[in-house]
Design a protein around this nucleic acid. Structure first.
Lengths: 278, 278
DNA sequence: TGACAAAATGACCGGTTAGTCATTAGTATA
DNA sequence: TATACTAATGACTAACCGGTCATTTTGTCA
């Protein structure tokens, strides 16, 4: 396994248990079975590891939701939003634990900035879903709905994680969808009005991290039989490493994928990725 | 000013900014303008300071709400609950910031235990309010209401604190009351069922801290004109230091207070305090 | 004023940390 | 096998941590 990946995975485990501050580099390297020096061949500092962890897993966390909202696949529903959210929470339980624990800013301003960035990105995603689901009818209460949804996710997540309950994702999604729906239909007294709008301004998009994308490709590749699709994937994978083809070819290759239902999501991600590259 | 209080106040400021781990004793003592040695005359260790801070401010935070629920003064409403909550949040802004930041974690199990204890206490308080407001009609959905209320408070608090907004406590209370009310009336698909009930079991009551009580007495004393009430207060204050009268006298003195509307809350607290003492 | 005690100080200690770097082990090539 | 190069090591450093305690400052009496 890639050493950088090994360190990130093992470090995340320890961080989730003990937090950033109380976990030493020595502990991490011992846990990885490597030397202290080897750590510094992969990361310039402890801070860089933490930043990398947050970026990597935040992308993992938002990738599915992002596709749900922006990929023109199925109609967006709150149920699907909650379902996907809790599903990815389970998949990346350690990271979610760490986030719930270290709501912090202790280390430095850069980390704080990063967390704020992703927080605002989440706000926007939820807002976008609510607008798509309810249309213009709820303009006066939409910001309140955003913060209610955030509150529900937060509260129920910590409930579930603290009590280590094996839970039914479908049930909780249905339950939270109902709550949001009821509020959307009956709320008349919002608290957050338009003057708070600045918080929901567009924020600069970040480039998708290569490693996240490559991982997505690899996992999709396993499910694929069709040789044309497979070849397209292999070629695209090479192009991620070094872009040599012109964008028409790339576009065509991505088009090949779109024919396979299993690859719809991936074709969306690839389009997004190569849009930045050119 | 009392040195212990000075340290607690200044340390809280630093903790709110930087978190527990990253704030050193040296920093605290520098900020207080005292020597490192002087710190250890007031506290046995850094851990003891943190524990003391949490106990002190958690009592400050829960005192008003506790009176609202258990003192038979006015009927309990969700509006009053939210109002009191946000009011005390403003009053102890630094501590709330610290709590939002240092959600759990690290130092030792004792601290974790303490935070869990207060969290469960909060659960119970909210549950109790919801039961009083809605009666038996909402038995199947009451736990979901508790976690929704917690989620709302959490989400809106961090919204307000992060954006440093000067906000209208009455408006946010009205808004959140409406949300809770709507959900109580329409929710049909709860997620948290009776099997989670163990979490809401009775937890042992803790003794009210003397310093919190004394502070309450002092602040009330300033508002009082009536000499009989004032004398009763002074005598009761002495008795908090050292209990020499028998409980009949104490009971009588507290009775004197109950006649003054400004002292109703205090008489409740004193009753609670001396009930433990005997 | 002087004698005594209480309060306050900060140099110091043992321990741990993030980060460095001279040295060694491993591997590919010829 | 000899050479050249990279990957990996762990002893080491400088800084900082919580906590101690011999010493000094301050306050309070007769």
């Amino acid at each position: 396994m890639n050493k950088k990946q090994l360190i990130m995975e093992k470090a995340l485990e320890l961080f989730a248990k003990q937090g950033f501050e109380t976990t030493s580099i020595q502990q991490i390297t011992d846990y990885c079975g490597i030397s202290k020096g080897a750590f510094y061949l992969s990361f310039k500092s402890k801070d860089e590891l933490i930043l990398a962890l947050i970026d990597h897993f935040m992308q993992e966390l938002t990738t599915d939701i992002d596709y749900l909202v922006n990929g023109r696949d199925l109609p967006v529903t709150l149920y699907r939003f909650f379902y996907t959210t809790f599903e990815t929470f389970i998949k990346h339980a350690d990271f979610v634990k760490l986030l719930m624990k270290e709501h912090t800013q202790s280390l430095d301003d850069e980390l704080l900035e990063k967390l704020r960035y992703y927080d605002r990105k989440t706000d926007q995603t939820i807002l976008s879903i609510i607008e798509k689901v309810y249309g213009d009818v709820i303009t006066t209460i939409k910001y309140d709905l955003v913060y209610t949804v955030k509150g529900l996710i937060n509260s129920y997540s910590s409930f579930l994680f603290f009590n280590k309950i094996d839970f039914d994702v479908a049930l909780i999604s249905k339950s939270l969808e109902e709550k949001t729906d009821i509020l959307a239909k009956h709320m008349t007294t919002p608290f957050i009005t338009d003057e708070s709008l600045e918080m929901f301004q567009e924020i600069p998009k970040e480039k998708m991290q290569k490693d996240v994308l490559l991982q997505q490709i690899n996992s999709t590749m396993e499910k694929i039989e069709d040789s044309l699709t497979k070849d397209s994937l292999i070629l695209l994978k090479e192009q991620i490493g070094e872009l040599t083809y012109n964008s028409a070819i790339i576009h065509g290759l991505i088009g090949n994928l779109a024919e396979q239902p299993e690859c719809k999501r991936l074709s969306y991600l690839l389009t997004k990725y190569f849009d930045f590259a050119k």
